[in-house]
């Protein structure tokens, strides 16, 4: 890093863990997560806020990691895909939404998947029983080149029905 690169020191809570880091003023949140914290589950696909691969939850709501500076996250609570397995057992344990993705073959190359998982996590917290239209509208904020979206919709709806069944 060049000597005159201005930095800010920020304190953030990410996936339940507190971090304090000096970060370059110009570094965006996605690059900060990936480069500074090695949380490489959040992907960068376009850097102009359209593809949605970098979507994370900031204070509980979805946001493009590429359209927010890391410095802006000072004091924020961030959730990334790395948080979703939660207490699921084992090194390959999956949370319910992740499991639904696997069950319904809702991912192929997997590059867009973490961002989509975060948007759907937000949706399902706000509205535990969205219909297909609501799922598709939320998904329209993401680009996926592999799946044609159909199995992603199916996975989201499976996660809904499992959650409803559990109640």
């Amino acid at each position: 890093m060049s000597s005159e690169e201005p930095v800010h020191t920020i304190a953030v809570t990410i996936n339940g863990k507190a971090y304090e880091r000096a970060v370059a003023d110009r570094k965006n949140l996605a690059d900060f997560l990936r480069q500074d914290l090695q949380l490489t589950g959040t992907h960068v696909g376009c850097e102009h806020g359209v593809c949605g691969a970098c979507t994370v939850l900031v204070d509980g709501v979805s946001a493009r990691g590429c359209l927010m500076l890391a410095a802006q996250a000072d004091g924020c609570t961030i959730e990334t895909v790395e948080s979703l397995a939660g207490d699921a057992p084992g090194p390959s344990g999956l949370g319910p939404l992740q499991q639904a993705f696997r069950d319904r073959h809702a991912l192929q190359c997997g590059f867009c998947t973490p961002g989509i998982l975060m948007s759907l996590t937000e949706l399902l917290r706000d509205d535990p029983s969205p219909d297909e239209e609501a799922v598709r509208v939320v998904l329209s904020g993401h680009l996926c080149r592999c799946t044609g979206y159909q199995n992603i919709v199916a996975a989201a709806l499976q996660a809904v029905s499992k959650a409803c069944g559990a109640r």
Binding site: V81, Q98, R102, L107, G110
Partner: peptide
């Protein structure tokens, strides 16, 4: 392939 990709 899925578990690793889904866990980030």
């Amino acid at each position: 392939e899925d578990p690793a990709l889904l866990r980030g």
